[in-house]
Design a protein around this nucleic acid. Structure first.
Lengths: 362, 362
DNA sequence: CGATGTCATGACACCGATGTCATACTTTTG
DNA sequence: CAAAAGTATGACATCGGTGTCATGACATCG
């Protein structure tokens, strides 16, 4: 590969002048510039970032780590996709600042994190992002303190800048919307209890009910997911059985995610119940390929992975530019996705101003 | 950041000795090594790839480009996921050789390809992979000729090494399997005709029929996809109407992809037809979250994205090591995914040895 | 025992850019 | 018109490692 000296020789100028043409950081006579540009084209010269970096100490690189980071291992290998959406969004955000993203995946081995970080540091990345495959608490990997680092779709106890989905608000908005559509008995089929998302969403579910002065009925909330296809299926059938045979059965079933909602469609149909005429169904994730393809299309809440990735990139860039920010550090940034309202939820002629009525009772 | 000279000073040795400790490329006394290692640890020294690269001229970097590459634009923005699975597989394959992957996404702008390639060249990547979001023909971007380049999930007319899914064989295997299960009237709801995959799969469909001496009936093959939600839905309804009201209707419907199969489930149910008792259904892609979650689980063909990514990485590494390979260059490498046989297809008590019977007829 | 070889280490140049400073040539200005 | 200011360019050191070669200390061998 040609060097700046080759170009200088061919163009009959000094290397420094070629550098000036490349960087436009000092005036160069038009005639000289043309000679240099001709030489560059002729030699297929491409400047070396490595050499450049040696002086400037700025690599223009960002490191992105995906896959298992901490040894939780109580969680199953995920569906494997959401973090990739984050990757894409991060890449776009970073690219818009002229930097380049290097990626590495732990392949599920949390002990791979250390060597990956080392490699990134050797490349002198100017910042690191870690993207998790589902909303979780992680134990921090080893980076030099003060090094720009942002967590996406996860958080830690050390106050590292983090961007996470606002599960609480997402579920709250969904339930609120269901109530506005006239639903009062709202069933909730949850994912595993130990998941961060489940806890937060349950809070959102309850707060929305509370805001509308609807009493929380524990019988309406049922664990309906375990990590085993066969048992999981039975669990879901039983959960629905239990809910639908309540004295006052729910008019809508909120599901822990869209895939569960898809199964619920099938189960309800097998029981002769039509969606949404007999029971409404709502999901979570806005996994488009499911939500839009199901018939009827599924009402759900978007898990804003793209927004999370974009925010993470943004945050990291600002950390790099301005150094560690002062305030507002402790809590993760929560990004709420909108409710995607589709035909799987029936609007029941609502008892107008039910809420006010309730309040007016002494 | 500390340099090798700082380490040398602290350890009381020369820089070169530190280098030797780092690279283990020459004998160093145990006592000296320990002093050096202590100094490295004390200073948090991390060697600079950039400086290293200047002498060795090997960056240890691979460039990966995703998103729109050529200005076809007749194809809609894809579902956006498959290429990310390829990204992950490529990353794993490359990482196993100790190299690092840099990624860039065109964000749908094919005119972004040139600057991205330029950036990669500036970083002195040792090879490039382009991963497309669906099986397609692409027009080559500008890379120095002889530069290691592999296409994944796409191919060009210039004979660039390419890894693509074997759509023909995939569909062939599926149909062959359906025939073995006793099906003779096999409906086929295709994706857009201009898609490479559609053409190849139709060939596979026909060849499997031919092998079994089943006459090809054009009435059984119907275009059922256009890029418009509303019109697409109507098209699919009509297609199914047409197929099911044939004098001899199909006993199984092959769908262009799993999402279509999911819709077909819904449509069939609305018509009072049970899957698979009344009609069997098969998909294509093995989009797990759909295929495994649908009830009944969907028989489909895996689109081996992970394998494609892995093969692409492998191929690129061999190109880098051994230089341009000689023979077997022209045709893309085709990777066939297995048939995922699930409960959406009914095994009809087959007319035993129908095939032989057919042959024996004069 | 001196010649030869191996081990352990250091001095120094070099990779390919850019920053600093010097210099020659122009143009502006009092 | 000379001094001051601006323009265009080059020489050279430098960034942080590694390759080459030299050197001194021992071990081995005929």
């Amino acid at each position: 590969m040609a060097t700046i000296y080759d170009v200088a020789r061919v163009a009959g100028v000094s290397a420094k002048t070629v550098s000036r043409v490349l960087n436009r950081d000092a005036p160069v006579k038009a005639a000289t510039r043309e000679k240099v540009e001709a030489a560059i084209a002729k030699l297929d010269f491409v400047p070396s970032t490595a050499a450049r970096m040696m002086r400037s100490n700025r690599s223009g690189l960002i490191g992105l780590i995906t896959g298992a980071i901490s040894q939780t291992s109580d969680q199953p290998a995920s569906h494997g996709l959401p973090d990739l959406v984050i990757v894409q969004a991060v890449q776009r955000g970073i690219a818009s600042s002229g930097m380049t993203v290097m990626i590495a995946d732990t392949g599920g081995q949390s002990d791979q994190v250390a060597p990956l970080v080392q490699t990134f540091l050797e490349h002198r990345v100017q910042g690191l992002i870690y993207a998790a495959d589902f909303h979780q608490r992680v134990a921090l990997p080893l980076v030099p303190k003060g090094f720009p680092l942002v967590l996406a779709n996860c958080f830690d106890d050390a106050g590292t800048p983090a961007i996470v989905p606002d599960d609480r608000r997402g579920q709250h908005m969904l339930v609120e919307r269901l109530i506005r559509a006239g639903h009062r008995r709202i069933g909730y089929l949850t994912l595993g209890r130990q998941m961060v998302a489940t806890q937060l969403r349950t809070e959102g579910y309850r707060s929305a009910l509370a805001e509308a002065d609807i009493a929380f009925d524990p019988a309406l909330v049922v664990l309906a997911y375990i990590d085993d296809a066969k048992l999981g299926s039975k669990l879901l059938w039983d959960a629905i059985d239990r809910l639908m045979s309540l004295p006052e059965p729910p008019t809508v079933l909120c599901c822990g995610n869209d895939a569960m909602a898809m199964r619920v469609y099938g189960i309800l149909r097998s029981r002769g119940l039509q969606v949404p005429q007999d029971v409404s169904v709502a999901g979570f994730d806005d996994h488009r390929i499911i939500a839009e393809t199901l018939y009827p299309p599924l009402t759900t809440v978007e898990l804003p992975y793209a927004a999370i990735g974009a925010r993470a990139a943004e945050r990291l860039l600002s950390l790099i530019e301005s150094g560690p920010e002062e305030g507002a550090d402790a809590a993760p940034t929560r990004v709420a996705g909108p409710v995607a309202w589709r035909e799987s939820v029936l609007s029941r002629t609502p008892v107008v101003d039910f809420k006010t009525q309730g309040r007016e009772r002494p």
